[in-house]
Design a protein around this nucleic acid. Structure first.
Length: 881
RNA sequence: GGGAGCUUAGCUCAGCUGGGAGAGCAUCCGCCUUACAAGCGGAGGGUCACUGGUUCAAGUCCAGUAGUUCCCACCA
């Protein structure tokens, strides 16, 4: 059992070995078992194109803390891992790679492209999950899934067909957000609006058979090629006479209806709006109301098509813009240019400006699906942490528009719709029909694929086997908590919520824990484009996964962004080393015999110090578990940290030393027992945060086969020792006071002195008799004499006061009486401050009358205590004079 | 145009249901005390952005102001 331990903890030699061991022993694997209570987390599946970044590290750490915590608590804990096919992101990468070889999608063809894409998946799709393992995540890798694997794809088909049957999926011509670079439609959630400085060009169009003009302004002059009308507000008297007349778009000579529509604001701009139904969402609506033609003037790549006329066809949209301005100017129809800032939509993947284009696309009707997801939140069935994001959730659902789910991509789930070549019929089915069920004509599958979030929305149940009724699905669904960044709320959380309700009949998770995004040390969001990301793998290489994890889990609260500081990792590393060395110390003092002897149950000869630390650990266990259950991971970690370092290492271990070093001490075994008990408790409490080092130490001591098989510490009444806690606090206070005094008086640590404790209280004297050894070892006393009155003590001894006792340390030759007076005066000032503050409270009639009785009593006790201490110090000062 | 967050020690941040302001890092002083110098002991440092309100009591609850960050939004 006894092992030699290095003076410094070296994660490198530990982490990979332990992780392989955990996986091999199947500790992360969970089977459906109706006799156990499940605890389930579905990982937010990382993109297969991705590389591990700090955001993953944060996200994974939080989930791992929760999973390990619940596992130790005895739950049947399942953390389901997997990856996302990331339709656009992946396809873009593959296309880029192909371009290097001079290939294009068109030249390769769909089948060959897909073959290539799957090859790429086989080659690199597993990289990200390998990287996750370095973090120590307790994922059930046997159950790893991929959004495009057979099961998940079946679920996608099932959902598509079912929603279609219910009439919730439809195909229609609508304006969609179109990325001219990726040449696909994208959803509203994928558009990022950014305020940009933009030209605001004013033009006039002549009115037919009149010498009047309509004057309007636009930020996108190229869309004038698609103008079909001019609109004014119906109540705008200035233009009432124009309604019904016809304006002329001079470049194309097209006739434009002048219509009245409420959408137009009379007091903005000129009060006249050009209407381009095929290229603007509002104009589209106006067009519907007034039955206007939709003239599409743009190709998929953003260039102008033949509808724009011979002079413009083929020109890029921005070239066309310049040319139109110039031509309108030449023709005398340009009025002026202003500058305004307006929100320009860009594609969140490639950044290029999104064009609203009129396209035939597939949509999910959202209203009916959104309502129950909204109700679930309003009923309180969905607990969002922190709660403020609940408003964001409900606001988004309330204003939700139909979801454009078709993408003009090949990498993804191809839409299970089959078009008849003969009639107009479209057959939606899981299995491709041989021929058209209507007319018997040949059919071909729809070319489009689905938005990547369509499959992610099903993740909580598709990964458990749905639509099959598997035991896993019955046992592990709904999941316990979803942990993700608040950025993903719209994309994913909301869609999982309504998909879960629709297909499983209940929400896919009870709690949603939202965390912030990672920022660099200057507060900038870590991003690829800024190049300010810090590689978690590099940090792990240098400091270990535990240090990284601990630094991510502490000092942070849900929903708040987190700055990455290497100093914080270092301080976490130092903490690990502290635990390591404390363990090493205990190990050094154990031999085979004592280890065996101290292994049993609670020994009867526990001292006050033992009971004090046992009691503290007992309370800690309760608090840490409570914090974790409330997702206060940072608080939980902080508490465990300060207990292990400040209480256990700095006080208890130091107190145990004299007992350990004295072979004759009859409480020696009790100390060894307590050291191990506390160490074991602390390791188990900390294990969710720092799994590797805790496992390494736990097994080195032979506490068990694996800490993963251990029980989480539980609060036990019989381990609660309030009296001993009070006694030890008194000893600690005396030690602190003496140390403080010695430091202020510049007494070298090597200078030991006789120490007298004087108290009229017999119980207090007993406490100090028992605690004498601690005052000796911790406060530089070579002898401690406990007295009931001050006799036989050098008048020039320096003194400190603690509640109910006075302590003297004769340091004659070292003491500067002037300094001592100053010190005592300072002490008096401090105590006087306390007395004043407490008295102010007690003199407040409102406080006495309305504050809780126990609080008033406490304050009274404090008043008495400080008053007494103050008098004692004052007497000491007088004694010096 | 809506909505939300943040403002606490030099820096980065905690502070749960209101009851004597905390941590880490940094700074200063003293220590190679046989687990650990990635350490030990001690110290300094904050009118908790501002104003008002509720309360016996406010960093904490409410209202407003300022600065700052973010999200949503079709003002051409």
């Amino acid at each position: 059992m006894k092992k030699d331990m290095e003076t410094k903890y070296n994660p490198k030699v530990v982490e990979d070995r332990l992780y392989a061991d955990w996986v091999e022993k199947g500790y992360f694997h969970a089977e459906a078992d109706e006799n156990k209570e499940p605890y389930t987390i579905m990982i937010p599946p990382p993109n297969i194109t991705g590389r591990l970044h700090m955001g993953h590290a944060l996200n994974a750490t939080l989930q791992d803390v929760l999973i390990r915590f619940k596992k130790l608590q005895g739950y049947n804990a399942l953390w389901m891992p997997g990856t996302d096919h990331a339709a656009i992101a992946t396809e873009v990468k593959i296309v880029e790679k192909m371009a290097e070889e001079g290939l294009t999608k068109a030249s390769l063809g769909r089948d060959a492209f897909m073959k290539r894409a799957w090859q790429w998946y086989d080659d690199v799709g597993g990289v990200i999950t390998k990287q996750f393992r370095k973090l120590g995540v307790a994922c059930d890798w046997q159950r790893q899934r991929f959004t495009m694997d057979k099961g998940c794809s079946d679920a996608v088909l099932e959902v598509f067909v079912k929603l279609h049957e219910k009439g919730l999926i439809y195909r229609g011509e609508r304006l969609v957000n179109w990325c001219t670079q990726c040449k696909t439609s994208i959803s509203d959630a994928e558009v990022e609006h950014e305020d940009k400085q933009s030209g605001f060009w004013h033009f006039k169009y002549p009115i037919k058979d009149s010498d009047e003009y309509v004057v309007f302004a636009t930020t996108r002059p190229e869309t004038m090629l698609g103008d079909v009308a001019i609109a004014v507000n119906p109540s705008d008297e200035r233009y009432a006479h124009l309604v019904g007349k016809t304006a002329i778009m001079p470049i194309l000579g097209r006739e434009l209806k002048i219509v009245a529509d409420e959408y137009v604001k009379a007091d903005f701009g000129t009060g006249m709006v050009k209407v381009t139904p095929a290229h603007d969402f509002n104009d589209f609506e106006i067009g519907v109301r007034h039955d206007l033609e939709r003239i599409n003037i743009m190709n998929d790549d953003g260039s102008i098509n033949e509808a724009g006329g011979d002079n413009y066809a083929g020109l890029d949209r921005y070239e066309a813009r310049k040319k139109i301005i110039a031509q309108m100017d030449d023709m005398g129809y340009f009025v002026r240019k202003e500058e305004i800032t307006n929100a320009v939509g860009g594609h969140d993947r490639c950044g290029s400006v999104v064009e609203p284009l009129n396209k035939l696309q597939w949509f999910v009707k959202m209203e009916e699906l959104a309502r129950p997801a909204l109700d679930a939140y309003k009923n309180g069935d969905l607990n969002i942490v922190p709660p403020r994001f609940g408003k964001v959730y409900s606001h988004w659902l309330e204003g939700i528009k139909d979801w454009c789910i078709s993408r003009q991509l090949w990498w993804g789930h191809r839409i299970p719709a089959y078009h008849c070549e003969g009639c107009e019929h479209i057959e939606v089915a899981k299995i491709a029909p041989d021929k058209c069920p209507k007319c018997g004509g040949a059919v071909y599958q729809d070319e489009d694929s689905l938005d990547t979030w369509f499959s992610s929305a099903l993740w909580p149940f598709s990964t458990l086997g749905w639509p099959e009724k598997t035991p896993e699905l019955a046992h592990f669904y709904p999941t316990s908590v979803l942990v993700t960044a608040y950025e993903i709320l719209f994309f994913w959380v909301i869609r999982m919520a309504f998909a879960g309700i629709e297909f499983m009949g209940e929400l896919p998770f009870k709690d949603v824990l939202l965390h912030g995004v990672m920022r660099d040390d200057q507060g900038r969001k870590m991003s690829k484009s800024l190049g300010n990301g810090i590689d978690p793998l590099g940090i792990i290489e240098e400091y270990g996964a535990d240090a990284l994890r601990f630094s991510l889990a502490t000092g942070n609260s849900p929903g708040n962004d987190l700055r990455f500081y290497i100093e914080k990792v270092e301080s976490s590393r130092n903490f690990l080393n502290k635990i390591w060395n404390a363990s090493r110390f205990i190990m050094m003092n154990l031999d085979n015999e004592t280890a065996e002897a101290t292994f049993g149950c609670l020994p009867s000869e526990l001292t006050a110090a033992d009971k004090w630390i046992i009691s503290k650990a007992n309370t800690l266990a309760k608090e840490v578990a409570e914090n974790l259950d409330k997702y206060e991971l940072g608080l939980a970690a902080d508490k465990a940290y300060s207990f292990m370092w400040d209480e256990f290492c700095d006080w208890y271990i130091e107190m145990a030393k004299p007992r350990l070093y004295n072979a004759d001490d009859e409480t020696r075994l009790a100390a060894l027992w307590t050291l191990q008990h506390i160490l074991s408790t602390g390791l188990r409490l900390l294990h969710p945060f720092i799994p590797f080092i805790t496992e390494e130490i736990y097994t080195s001591f032979g506490f068990g086969e694996s800490i993963l098989l251990a029980d989480y510490p539980k609060y036990q009444d019989e381990l609660n020792f309030p009296i001993e806690e009070g006694q030890m606090e008194q000893i600690k206070e005396a030690v602190r006071a003496l140390r403080n005094m010695r430091s202020q008086m510049n007494v070298p640590p090597s200078r030991k002195a006789q120490t007298f404790v004087v108290s009229t209280n017999v119980d207090v004297r007993a406490v100090f008799e028992a605690g004498a050894k601690y005052i000796k070892s911790l406060a530089g006393a070579n002898e401690v004499i406990v007295l009931s009155e001050k006799v036989g003590i050098d008048d020039n001894a320096v003194s400190v006061v603690v509640p109910s006792a006075e302590i003297f340390m004769p340091l004659a030759e070292l003491v500067d009486m002037e300094k001592e007076r100053e010190r005592l005066q300072k002490e008096i000032k401090k105590l006087q401050g306390e007395v004043d503050r407490v008295n102010a409270k007690l003199n407040n009639q409102g406080f006495i009358a309305k504050a809780p009785a126990n609080l008033v009593e406490e304050e009274k006790a404090k008043a008495a205590k400080y008053q007494e201490m103050l008098q004692v110090v004052q007497k000491q000062l007088e004694g010096l004079k």
